[in-house]
């Protein structure tokens, strides 16, 4: 592949344009990622700033914020997803035509952020949607969103027509829309955001990585520094781990008592 690209680039210098159908498709996709005009909290302000002239999202072909999910390719989940709003977010995603991408913007959309221990905020939109790119920050700067768009573009570059599901014969599947329960959101009668215990694990992968998470730790050869990705963590189900998180076991969330040092 790399040799092929080198030949292509060399030919392009000579004014001969040769392309593969993959590269041509992906060029079209990456150059016109139209986001859904959809904001939930303060991250949306940064998203608007990104779309305006100073940061100029149009340089990436992503300036066309569509008011209808039917015309959008990208959902930027910009802000705190409350439990009351989560079903609507999933419904909007289901209404988007494929291929569709999700950027989880900011700490709240990614994990619940500062509201994680509250009663009303969803602990990460990835419990219900397959997220392609996560952006840390509270809120992230427009540069961070631009970087996420560029990361998404490089992901789109890696799509293979014969591998990606939506070019095949299988139909788009709707993601289950959560319903309201007595304690929280439910899917098929099962509480999806239980209180306490380990941080929740998303059941979904990025669509480019196969959408369904297997429950195994992916790429075990890589060193993980984030506790939840520790391969000693056993999974109870697709989105719940067994036992108490390592950082709680070592009492890392509280303020450490100052160590008594004898002078």
């Amino acid at each position: 592949m790399s040799e092929d690209s080198e030949i292509q680039f060399e030919l392009e210098k000579q004014g001969v344009f040769v392309s593969t159908i993959n590269r041509f498709y992906n060029w079209g996709r990456r150059s016109s990622v139209w986001p859904l005009a959809f904001g939930l909290a303060c991250c949306a302000i940064e998203m608007m700033a990104t779309g305006l002239s100073r940061y100029d999202l149009a340089r990436f072909g992503a300036e066309m914020f569509r008011a209808s999910p039917r015309q959008a390719d990208l959902m930027i989940v910009a802000g705190t997803v409350t439990k009351k709003m989560a079903p609507q977010v999933v419904r909007l995603y289901n209404q988007m035509p494929e291929p569709r991408y999700v950027i989880s913007m900011g700490a709240c959309a990614t994990s619940g952020g500062p509201f994680r221990d509250g009663y009303n905020v969803l602990r990460g939109i990835d419990l219900f949607l397959p997220v392609d790119v996560y952006i840390p920050g509270c809120p992230p700067r427009p540069e961070a969103l631009l970087h996420a768009i560029m990361t998404l573009q490089s992901q789109i570059d890696d799509q293979k027509l014969n591998r990606v599901r939506w070019y095949g014969k299988t139909e788009a599947k709707d993601f289950p829309v959560p319903t309201f329960g007595k304690q929280g959101l439910k899917i098929d009668g099962r509480l999806i955001d239980p209180v306490g215990g380990l941080p929740l694990i998303s059941p979904y992968n990025s669509p480019l990585a196969g959408e369904q998470r297997s429950g195994r730790i992916e790429h075990p050869e890589l060193a993980r520094f984030f506790p939840i990705m520790d391969d000693t963590v056993e999974l109870e189900g697709p989105n719940k781990a067994v036992g108490i998180a390592p950082e709680i076991a070592i009492d890392d969330l509280r303020k450490r008592k100052p160590e008594v040092t004898s002078a």
């Binding site: 221990d117 009663y119 209180v195 306490g196 108490i244 709680i248 969330l253």
Partner: peptide, 14 residues
């Protein structure tokens, strides 16, 4: 939820 005896949520209260 704003009553004081509403169960506190989250890992750090376990």
């Amino acid at each position: 939820p704003m009553r004081k005896d509403f169960p506190r949520q989250g890992d750090k209260y376990i």
